[in-house]
Measured scan of single mutants.
Amino acid sequence: MQNSHSGVNQLGGVFVNGRPLPDSTRQKIVELAHSGARPCDISRILQVSNGCVSKILGRYYETGSIRPRAIGGSKPRVATPEVVSKIAQYKRECPSIFAWEIRDRLLSEGVCTNDNIPSVSSINRVLRNLASEKQQMGADGMYDKLRMLNGQTGSWGTRPGWYPGTSVPGQPTQDGCQQQEGGGENTNSISSNGEDSDEAQMRLQLKRKLQRNRTSFTQEQIEALEKEFERTHYPDVFARERLAAKIDLPEARIQVWFSNRRAKWRREEKLRNQRRQASNTPSHIPISSSFSTSVYQPIPQPTTPVSSFTSGSMLGRTDTALTNTYSALPPMPSFTMANNLPMQPPVPSQTSSYSCMLPTSPSVNGRSYDTYTPPHMQTHMNSQPMGTSGTTSTGLISPGVSVPVQVPGSEPDMSQYWPRLQ
C-alpha cells in the first residue's frame, strides 16, 4: 500500500499530492522566468500547473527564495509595531506611495530583511487598517496617535501638521516623493554593498519588468496595427511575429492590442446598429396606417339613396333571421326581375335548405315592403301603392349592394327569390 497518492495534472505532468515540487523543477521555473518566458509558457514547457508556477515565482520575487514554506503551523507575524509605524510614516510623507514602493524602502533602510519582509498584500492590509482606524477615531485622537508614531512633539492640530517642515499644504506631496526618490538612490547604494547585491538587483529588475506600465504606442505603430486590423481581426502567430519585427513591439503586446481592438470594434458596431435601427424607425405612426385595407374592405359607393341603408337594423327591421341572411350572402350585381318571367313554384328541397333563413311567422307573405323604405322617402312611396304591378321595390342582398326588384302586385311571395340566388 502506497503512503502517498501520485497523479497526472491537466498538462500531463506527474505530481505527488500534498508534497511540494522538487527543487530542480523550481530552479528551472526561475531560470525560464529570467530568460523572459511568460508564466503560461513555463507552465506548458515544464508541465506544471499555472497556479503552481505563479505561486513559486511570486514567492521568489518577494523573498528571493525558491524553497517551499513549512507545511503546517502558523507563519510568524511580520507586521510588527515597528514595521507598522514605518509604513504609516512613509504614507504620511508621500500619500500616493504604492505598497511595493513601501516594501522596497523597508528593505533599503534595513527595517526588514528578506526573511521577515511583509508581502505587498500585508502592507496593503496595514494601510487599510490605518485608514479604518482613522475613520473610527476622532480628529484629536487621530492626531495624537500619528504624533506618537512619528515621534515628534510638534502641533498636529492642523492639517499642514501632517507634513512636517512644510508650510504650503500643496507642497508636502512633492517633497515626500522627492525624499522617497532619494531613498531609492540609497536603495541602490545599500544593496550594492550587501553580499547578495547582484541577486537582489536582478530580482528587482525582473520584478519591475513584470510590473509594467501601460504600453505607449507611437503613431507609426498605431498606423501599422490599424492597417493589419483592417486586413483581418484575428491575425495568426506568423502575422503577429512579422508585425512585431516590423514595428519593434513584443508579440504578446500585439496580441493584447488586437484583443482590445476587437472589443472596441464590437462596441462601435453595436452603436452603429442602434443608430441604423433608430433612423429606419419613423418618429410617429401615421393615422391612416393604423387601418389596414386588408382588414377593412372598402364599401362601394351607393348608386341610389335607398342603398345607403345596408342592414335591417338601420331600417328599423327587427327580424334577425333576414338580417343574418342578407349579411351572409355574397355580393351580387344589380339585376331586375321582369313581370314576364315565369313564376316557378319553389322546389321543396330548395325551400327546406333555406328554411332556417325565413321567419317562422306566416304573415311574411302579407307584409308590405314599406318597412324598408327610409324616412325621407315615405311620402313618395305612399303616393304609389304597392298593389300595382309596376311598383318597384329595392331588396338588399349584402352591405353596400342594392338590387332593384320588380315585385308582382298580386302576391309578394318571398319564396320566388331563392331559386334565382343559387
Rank of each mutant, 00 (worst) to 15 (best):
Q2S: 10
Q2C: 09
N3S: 12
S4Q: 09
S6L: 06
N9I: 01
Q10K: 05
L11H: 07
L11M: 11
G13N: 02
F15I: 05
R19W: 04
P20V: 01
L21M: 04
P22L: 06
D23M: 05
D23F: 06
S24C: 11
T25W: 05
R26Y: 03
Q27F: 09
V30I: 12
L32T: 02
A33N: 15
A33H: 00
A33W: 09
A33Q: 12
S35A: 14
G36V: 03
P39L: 13
P39M: 15
P39W: 04
D41H: 14
I42R: 02
I42H: 01
I42M: 03
S43G: 09
S43Q: 03
S43V: 05
I45F: 11
I45E: 15
Q47T: 05
S49L: 03
N50V: 15
N50Q: 15
C52F: 03
C52Y: 02
S54C: 13
L57M: 15
R59Q: 10
R59E: 02
Y60C: 04
T63Q: 04
S65D: 15
S65I: 10
I66T: 14
R67P: 01
R69D: 05
R69P: 03
A70E: 07
G72A: 01
S74E: 02
K75T: 07
K75M: 06
P76A: 11
V78A: 05
P81Q: 13
E82Q: 07
S85T: 12
K86Q: 15
A88V: 15
Q89C: 00
K91M: 00
R92K: 09
E93D: 13
E93H: 10
E93F: 10
E93Y: 14
C94W: 13
C94P: 07
C94L: 11
P95H: 14
S96T: 08
S96N: 14
I97A: 15
I97S: 09
F98D: 02
A99Y: 01
W100I: 06
E101I: 10
E101V: 13
I102W: 01
I102C: 03
D104R: 13
D104S: 12
D104L: 07
D104Y: 09
R105H: 08
R105I: 12
R105D: 11
S108L: 13
S108I: 10
E109W: 11
G110K: 08
G110L: 15
V111E: 08
C112Y: 04
C112A: 13
N114D: 14
D115R: 09
I117A: 09
I117H: 14
V120S: 04
V120Q: 03
S122Q: 02
S122Y: 02
S122C: 06
N124K: 03
R125G: 00
V126G: 06
L127R: 06
L127H: 05
R128Q: 15
N129F: 06
L130P: 15
L130W: 15
A131R: 05
S132K: 06
E133R: 07
E133S: 10
E133Q: 07
Q135Y: 14
Q136A: 09
Q136D: 09
G138S: 10
A139L: 11
A139W: 11
A139M: 11
G141Q: 11
L146N: 06
M148T: 07
